[in-house]
Structure formats: C-alpha cells, structure tokens
Design a protein around this nucleic acid. Sequence first.
DNA 1: CGGTTGTTTGAGGACGTTCAAGTACTGTGG
DNA 2: CCACAGTACTTGAACGTCCTCAAACAACCG
Lengths: 237, 237
Amino acid sequence: MNQADISALFALPLFAPLPVAMLEQLCEQGFVHSEPTDAVLFQEGDSARFLHVILAGKVALFATASSALDPSRPPQREAIVEIFSAGEVVIAPAVLLDMPYLMSARVIEPARIAFLPAPGIRDLLRDSHDFAREAALMLARHWRLLARQLKDQKLRSAPQRLGRYLLTLANGTSSGRVEVDLPFDRRTLASWLGMSPENLSRSIAQLAEVGVHFRGRVATIEAVDRLHAYCLEDDLR
Amino acid sequence: MNQADISALFALPLFAPLPVAMLEQLCEQGFVHSEPTDAVLFQEGDSARFLHVILAGKVALFATASSALDPSRPPQREAIVEIFSAGEVVIAPAVLLDMPYLMSARVIEPARIAFLPAPGIRDLLRDSHDFAREAALMLARHWRLLARQLKDQKLRSAPQRLGRYLLTLANGTSSGRVEVDLPFDRRTLASWLGMSPENLSRSIAQLAEVGVHFRGRVATIEAVDRLHAYCLEDDLR
DNA sequence: CGGTTGTTTGAGGACGTTCAAGTACTGTGG
DNA sequence: CCACAGTACTTGAACGTCCTCAAACAACCG
C-alpha cells in the first residue's frame, strides 16, 4: 500500500478522525489493488471478508433474479441496486454485521480499491468511538439513498425516474438551463433506474416533451423547474 | 414517563449498554404517548424533532406521489416503504443527520410511542461509543431490509413478492407445511409489497398453484420448498 | 470495408392498474 | 336473532406501461 493510497484512505470522513496507530495497523492488514471493468469483487451469498474502499473508479452493486447459487437457469435477469464511486465504501452493512452479502459487486469503470480485512473493521467499530459514529452517519446517508430509490420505484413511472435522476445530476441548479453529463453507459443506467435499455431509450424520447434533449452522454435540460414539476419532485435531499 | 415504559425502553439493544445517568437524562427530556390508528407522527419534509421508539403497536413509513407540500393534486397515490413494530425505532437516519424526513409516518395499529428529543439523541451519538456502535449496527440491518426490498421490487413479479413475504413470516421453517398469520390488512400489505389491493387478490389466487391457500388472515403453505423455488428465493437473511 | 457493439424503433404480449360491480365480513340497532 | 349499513375483499373488463424479441441503424475499430 503506497503513500498516496494511504493518505487518500485517511482523508475519508470514516477514517479521518482515527489515531495514527490504528490507521497504520489497518494498512498493514490490508492491501490495494487495481481492478479492470467487469471484475467481480464478491458475489451474493459470499461472507464479507473485506471492506472495499473505492479510491478511484466505479463499482455497481447488483442482484440477479435466479439464485446465484444455482447456475442452471439461463435467463438471469439482473438489476443494479446501487453504484458507488471514489471515496465510498462498498456494503459496510455486511462487513459490520458479519453476514453474507445480499448482492454482488462488479467494477463498471476501472477502479483502484483498498481491501481492508473485515475483522479489523469490526474491531474498529468496537474500539473506536469516532469510527462507530462516522459509520453510523455514513449508514444513515446510505439508508436515505435506498429509501429514495424505493420510493421512486414504487410510485413513479420510468420517464419520471429518469427525470429525477437528471435532477440529482444537476444538483444545486434550481432554475433555467443546465447541461449534465451521464456518468454511465445506457445499459448500466437503465438497469440502475429499474428499466430495460429499450425503455430507457423511449423515456429519453419522452422527456423531449418537457424540454430535455440528449446528445450522446450529455443531456440538456431547458427548464429545470419544468422537469421538476413533471417528475413530482419533492425537493428533499 | 412511567417505570414500565422506561424499563422497556432500556431493554432495547440501542439503549441497553448506556450508563444509567445518560438514560435518566434522556427520559427527562422525552415523553411517552399513546397514538390511535391513522395518527400521523410526522410528514415528509418535516425536520426530525424526535426519535420515535415504538413500545407497542405498528407504524408505517409511506411516501406520496405528488409533493406533500402541494396539497392541490387530488389522486395522491401513496406507497408504504417500511413498517416498524414494537422495539423498533422510526427513521433514525433523519434524526442522526439532522435532515428533513424523506417520508411520512402513520400509525397502523394503536401504538405506544416514546418521543426522545432529537438533539439529545445526537448528543448521545457524539458522547457514547456504545450508542454509536449500536446505532451503526441497527442502521446496517435496516439498510439490508431496504436493499432486499429494492431487489424484490426491481426483479420479481407481484406474486413472487407476496410469496417471499410469506416465507419471511414462516422464517425458520425450511420444509413441509406451515401456517402463517398476516399481520396487516390487505390494503396495507398491498401497498407495502408495491402493488394495488386488486393485484394482491390476484396474486393470492395465483399462489394456489404452488400450494398456498388463504383463509382470512391465515395463509397455509403446503410445501415451503415449493414456494421457495417459485419465488427464486436465495436463502439470504 | 466488414465486424462488433451499443442504441433506437416497431410489433406483440405480459403484467399491473383502474374503474366498476359484485360478494363476503363485521358490527350495530331494532 | 335478524336486518341493515358499512367496510373489506374479490372479480371482471378495459386500458396503460413496460418487457421481449426482432430488426434497423449508428458508431467505433480492426
């Protein structure tokens, strides 16, 4: 684990408040590895051996329809449940609770990842008040992300979900015209938003009616508040 | 706050490890109140003034389609996102982060609820390692509940979601015949499972084909493993 | 230029919702 | 105990959304 990795790791809120001795011990136990696109960090059902900290790149959490344990069924529909980027931690819950993962994780953009052994992390939870507090706050934020998604999934249509996603990308801008960059390819985005790639295409076409236009990976929102209204957006972060 | 309430409160994992002094202070600041069915504890967008601890009864977290802030639109579709029972805590994330609620909460079964002031809870997170650790573990479990739901929502059909819910009720029994009690009325259950009440009816009818029969609020599963297979259940808790 | 991959478009169908009507259940007052 | 009202639940038909499959198209790369 080189010096740059170490300092990046310890700049994260989760680790920043820890005493140097603890951090050094953590580093000794762990390692950093670069992972190409499509590398699988772990699979649904695996026990959590490491806490994965993303130093660069992106990782998608996904679930498959038929049991991952039973490799027979061919169709294997899959759904992306969450996407994590640099500075984030992949599924702390399984690590903290020492329970098997509910989902699998796959690299979707070449990533540099720190592997910190799970027992060490659980020791940290037990021994460090600062770590426990930061972990609680992080998990609270992650809970809200999932809650928001579940809400969208249960009561908004596909184009509305797309619109809401664009609004989170345009985060901050509250009116007028904005350009936003889609951070993923459309297949990935579709899966995350809970729709087929075909239906994402149609949703994109649909949003033209409320003044949203796509050119490659760039979306132009002509009037943020118009899209807002269309999505029944509620302003809550 | 009477003695019975106090001891019930302090038997919860979240509070059990705390020193008596802290607990007493918490009780002084808070109060306990009985709430009838349909009482609203808070609404989407409210700032989190209390941590609500359920001593008895049930509370549903729900979201509405059109902004709760704008009372004009009539249809107001709503979806239940989570249901909490005795011994659980209603939306710790908003309290810990000091952010507005993303959802509203309504009593669905007459409840006795402890209201603990949010600032006191945040102090606890700052001052008590035990509380911070227990909070992190609780939030980790709650994250998994939502993740599981999101997974179901994105890749399973309505009858499969119902089947999976029955299996969680039959929790533990791994084969043979089981009877389970539905803890809610069908309207509530339908909303929680992300379907219309009509579609819940049809899903119930559907499950007869895999040997599940309903009589009022009792469901009889003839063969757990058969239902298991039908739902593409993955065995993960 | 052909092959590969990613996106779009169209047709058909499955799933789920809505609206409307019918049936069963529950409690109340006669 | 029964009649009744009110509620919950079920059933049916029509519609809408989204998915699947297939084909057309575009972009990229050898």
